[in-house]
Simulated assay, not measured.
Amino acid sequence: MEPSYEKDREYIVAKRRFLNMAVLLGVAAALVSAFVQFRAAEYVVAAQSLCFPLLGPLVLLYLRRSDAAYSRGLTLLALLTLLGQSLTTLFGLTNVVNLCWYAVYPLAYFFLLGPTRGLKWSFAALSLTIAFYGALPWVEGYRPIDPMAFSMAMLAYCVAVALAWFHVHMVGTYQRRLYERVNYDHLTGALSRVGGIDLLQRYVNLSNRDPQRPLAVVSFDLDDFKRVNDTYGHDSGDRVLRGVAKGIAAVIRRSDCLVRWGGEEFLVLLPGAALEDARGIADKLRGVVRTATRDMLPMPITASVGVAAYRRGESIAELLKRVDDLMYAAKRSGKDAVAFRHDIDVPPAEAEVSADSI
């Protein structure tokens, strides 16, 4: 899972609010600029100033329609910004005041498009600006601003790009570290409980939207693990947990996910797996626990496993309660077993239990 505040729902809501304010301020500024330019008889420049007031609010309304429209709307706003930058270069460089906008354009690209696309767009727009300015002296009767003033504006543009990139890079670095600390277990490398719940919610949402997309959850707990810590020490217990996590991660599918739920209890999320498929995977995982820890301690390490398929419409808490009950049913049956059921209304005490050796 790739960490990105750009996909965070709270960030998107805040960004939309800021865009509402920014577009309204941009429209007001453009209208004032157009009025001044009309008064000065600069009709061509005034006409290009009216592009944003005419198109900006329409794009703002469009990006509110859906998540897909939101993404496309940001690109449209970036195109509108690029159009404004190009028109300013072509028609507005007779006035040195217009140079102040060049330090703002790259910030808009970074804000609208994110760091990678924002950097590409900033340099593409810079190249167009320099090319347009270089062609202006060849236009009959056109007298652009002094090259020194233009060069200073381009320097300010590059500084704005560098500062924006540095800020986004540093924020991304610390965000990634925080994301890993919150969402991953430092001992085993598996997802943490917090990260597991977030991912499970995502899988549940996908399953609810698509009836043909099943979801199963496997819960397993290492049997008598307290005795491992008490007899051989916590270092040995940690080594066992790392070995189990490494062994499980090596055999599950790329789409599956291992979660350290707490202590010696783990979950395996199985998107796209029906109950019978999940049962087979659970039997395999029970064997992996034995083989991955075989040479670590004199005593064998086993696991009690519960398997449940998601029932469309139930809450995550209900699903986790069912699979947890099944895991304890496996323990009550004598441990080193897999408990599952085909009928969700069967009490956990009556769940089917498989303890065949692997």
Results as ranks from 00 to 15, higher is better:
226 K>W: 09
249 A>R: 09
268 V>C: 08
200 L>W: 03
242 R>I: 05
263 G>H: 09
249 A>E: 12
203 Y>L: 10
246 K>Y: 03
251 V>Y: 00
219 S>N: 13
273 A>W: 00
237 G>K: 04
220 F>E: 10
237 G>E: 07
224 D>K: 11
245 A>I: 07
206 L>E: 14
200 L>M: 15
200 L>C: 11
245 A>F: 04
192 S>H: 05
222 L>S: 04
187 L>E: 05
248 I>Y: 02
204 V>N: 05
236 S>C: 08
196 G>A: 05
232 Y>N: 06
257 C>H: 04
184 Y>K: 08
250 A>E: 14
269 L>R: 00
245 A>Q: 10
229 N>F: 10
232 Y>S: 09
229 N>K: 09
192 S>C: 09
276 E>D: 15
252 I>P: 06
215 L>D: 01
200 L>T: 05
199 L>G: 00
244 V>M: 08
191 L>F: 14
250 A>T: 06
264 E>M: 12
213 R>F: 07
208 N>V: 06
252 I>Q: 00
197 I>D: 09
233 G>F: 11
221 D>W: 02
270 L>F: 08
250 A>F: 02
267 L>C: 05
238 D>I: 08
186 H>A: 15
202 R>C: 05
197 I>E: 14
210 D>C: 12
232 Y>I: 09
242 R>A: 13
244 V>G: 06
253 R>Q: 12
254 R>M: 02
202 R>G: 15
261 W>H: 15
192 S>F: 01
245 A>E: 07
242 R>G: 03
243 G>Y: 01
214 P>H: 06
248 I>K: 00
235 D>L: 15
273 A>R: 00
259 V>G: 08
192 S>Q: 06
233 G>Y: 14
184 Y>P: 00
258 L>Q: 10
254 R>A: 09
228 V>F: 03
222 L>K: 10
244 V>A: 12
230 D>A: 07
258 L>I: 13
244 V>W: 09
195 G>I: 02
234 H>L: 13
201 Q>V: 01
256 D>Q: 09
276 E>A: 15
251 V>R: 12
217 V>Y: 05
244 V>F: 07
206 L>M: 13
211 P>C: 11
235 D>M: 13
241 L>H: 05
204 V>G: 01
220 F>W: 09
201 Q>W: 00
198 D>A: 13
215 L>P: 00
235 D>R: 15
214 P>W: 07
202 R>Y: 03
191 L>C: 09
231 T>F: 11
231 T>G: 06
230 D>L: 11
227 R>K: 14
240 V>L: 02
275 L>M: 14
261 W>M: 08
243 G>N: 12
203 Y>R: 04
248 I>N: 03
235 D>T: 13
237 G>V: 03
266 F>S: 02
210 D>H: 13
230 D>Y: 11
